[in-house]
């Protein structure tokens, strides 16, 4: 299979990336490779820096140290049109869909096509129909985002993300805030897209079910560091205490939320 052959070569590559916010190191010397055609899941607690990692890969944020290669281009160094050229080859599904409220479903999906291609309206219409039927939303073309449910908005966001037939799709918590069934539908879509269209998927999530459903490889992030990069099967049997705590959802363990709070002893200077 083509997919297997090209898998060895990284499509996204982070090298010693660090990012600071107000003097705090949010991303701490992170390096990993994402290979062609794989579904790479980045998991971690809220505030672990996984969303920041995603924004670094899409060029929204720039790292203070290190470099990020997307398809061979260091997107931490390029700006303007050069960056836009790279961005046209990837799509992104946002946590809250981020559809434009003022546009209909149809216009939202066709926006990247109208902006970046010179296709005739008839062809754009056909592409929209195709993309919407891929996500199972034919018949909702004329609805506004406020008139459809959260799960449907996510699917419209997905249709928009794949409108330009990207090679890479980034997913920011695709199943959060959805019921398990719709979450399962989204997982299935992600898997189908990466298999049918040979898309490289980068998924940020803390939903363990979807990790086991879709991932080819998993990276665990904690406090801006990569704890481990592994496969879902190895994840279950991993001896790493961070991973064990995370996948089992235990309140106590090495990932300790309570420790970071000021204890009552410290207030009284004990």
């Amino acid at each position: 299979m083509i997919k297997k052959d090209s898998k060895d070569e990284p499509i996204i590559s982070l090298k010693n990336v660090s990012k600071y916010f107000h003097g705090n190191k949010i991303i701490d010397n992170v390096s990993f490779d994402i290979l062609h055609g794989e579904t790479f899941v980045i998991m971690g607690c809220s505030g672990s820096g996984k969303s920041t990692l995603l924004r670094l890969m899409t060029g929204i944020l720039k790292p203070e140290e290190g470099s990020i290669f997307v398809k061979g281009k260091d997107i931490s160094k390029i700006r303007g049109e050069e960056l836009d050229e790279v961005r046209k080859t990837f799509g992104m599904l946002f946590q809250y869909s981020a559809l434009l409220d003022s546009l209909t479903v149809e216009d939202n999906v066709s926006l990247p096509l109208k902006e970046h291609t010179r296709l005739a309206q008839e062809i754009i219409d056909i592409i929209i129909k195709m993309k919407l039927s891929l996500v199972g939303l034919r018949g909702y073309e004329k609805h506004y985002p406020s008139q459809i449910s959260g799960g449907m908005r996510k699917r419209v966001g997905l249709a928009r993300a794949i409108a330009l037939d990207p090679n890479i799709v980034f997913y920011d918590e695709p199943t959060s805030g959805l019921d398990p069934v719709v979450g399962g539908v989204i997982d299935k879509l992600i898997k189908e897209l990466s298999e049918k269209l040979l898309i490289t998927s980068v998924v940020i999530t803390h939903d363990m079910q979807s990790v086991f459903n879709i991932a080819d490889r998993v990276a665990m992030v904690h406090k801006g560091r990569i704890i481990d990069v592994t496969t879902p099967d190895e994840l279950r049997s991993s001896q790493n205490p961070y991973i064990q705590q995370f996948i089992n959802g235990r309140p106590l363990g090495p990932i300790d939320f309570f420790k970071e709070d000021i204890g009552i002893g410290e207030i009284f200077g004990l």
Partner: peptide
Amino acid sequence: GTMKVSEQIEALETMAIN
């Protein structure tokens, strides 16, 4: 402002739309 806080502006940037 609403578009900015609901990630719509970021979505535009990610779609290479200024």
